[in-house]
């Protein structure tokens, strides 16, 4: 089926085209900063996409999602520090650890609803943050420098910035595709049904707790992968990645772009980081503008940018 030529689809198409052309543009003007900024945008968009899966479609407002960024990053960092550089080992292990921790956190947190859930995910993320701070062997508060990126033999060289960017972009698109397949499957319908009315879904025979837990683990794993990429991108990992304000930033990205919309998190991440660059260019105290702006967005533009583009207001 051809997608309709709406304003929203045109913007998404242009955005994707722009993302594909970023390395070309960076090479032409010889500016590595642009490529680095956009690598960061793509990686964070992946984290935001995974948060959107549980928050936008599943109604589970996790205020601790940045923890998985740190977990994925720390697995890569610690293994590299101990001399294990192979990406074939680092990456699956990072995903496995992210999934396991998401499973345990989900198992405990999903027993609760609403505000309790928000606060509990926040508290667990804070606990993981403190574990990072107390890792004395691995730099504790100061973090850990990663001297060599994950090695994939002759398959792919992550030290090449352009190659790395395209890898991140492909993985982002793969995550968006995965989320799209998930939310349109029977599983995704059950998740969205449980968001609207958990008790009713349960009554017609869906084991909603198991469904929501699975969804929570998938999101944590995708975000763990984003953490792996982030650590490889910055060649560094520190507890600051898991600070609770980072989790707040991820929520802002998702809501800014549009909750429960496929490309919303990507749009939101681009808008968030562009806004950050722009405002911090105006004044050193840019958050004094950004904070009230956030308040205004909540009060007056609830569907996010995607909602504005589609011309409908979510309620």
């Amino acid at each position: 089926m051809m997608p309709a030529l709406t304003l929203r689809n045109v913007v998404v198409a242009l955005l994707l085209l722009m993302l594909f052309l970023v390395p070309v543009y960076a090479a032409v003007i010889g500016n590595n900063f642009v490529l680095s900024l956009f690598t960061r945008i793509v990686i964070l968009a992946m984290a935001a996409t995974s948060l959107n899966l549980i928050m936008g479609y599943g109604g589970m407002v996790s205020f601790g999602h940045a923890a998985y960024l740190g977990i994925g990053g720390y697995v890569v960092g610690i293994l590299a520090y101990e001399g294990i550089l192979s990406g074939f080992l680092q990456w699956p292990l990072a995903l496995l650890v992210s999934a396991l921790i998401a499973f345990v956190i989900g198992l405990l947190s999903l027993r609760t609803r609403g505000v309790y859930f928000i606060m509990i995910t926040l508290a667990f993320a804070q606990m993981i943050y403190y574990v990072g701070v107390s890792l004395n062997r691995y730099g504790a508060d100061d973090g850990l420098t990663i001297y060599r990126r994950s090695q994939f033999g002759d398959l792919i060289n992550l030290s090449n910035k352009t190659v790395f960017y395209y890898l991140c972009l492909v993985l982002l698109l793969a995550s968006i595709y995965l989320v799209w397949r998930l939310v349109n499957s029977r599983f995704g319908m059950a998740i969205q049904g449980a968001r609207s009315n958990d008790r009713r879904m349960h009554a017609i025979g869906f084991p909603t707790f198991r469904y929501r837990l699975t969804c929570f683990v998938i999101a944590g794993t995708i975000c763990g992968l984003a953490g792996v990429l982030l650590a490889n991108h910055t060649d560094f990992i520190s507890p600051a990645v898991m600070h609770w304000t980072r989790s707040g930033d991820l929520i802002v990205m998702v809501v800014l772009g549009g909750m429960g919309s496929l490309f919303g998190p990507l749009i939101g991440t681009v808008a968030f980081l562009a806004l950050e660059e722009w405002l911090s260019g105006i004044t050193e105290y840019w958050q004094i503008i950004f904070g009230p702006l956030l308040l205004a967005i909540v009060l007056f533009a609830r569907g996010g940018i995607d909602g504005l583009l589609a011309g409908i207001r979510r309620d």
Binding site: V61, W286, Q287, I288, G291, L295, V298, L299
Partner: peptide, 21 residues
């Protein structure tokens, strides 16, 4: 509650920066 979280998160950023200023 999500709106509360977002709006008050914005307030935190505002107050922290205001104190710094």
């Amino acid at each position: 509650h999500l709106d509360h979280v977002l709006a008050t998160f914005g307030l935190i950023l505002f107050f922290n920066e205001l104190v710094r200023l």
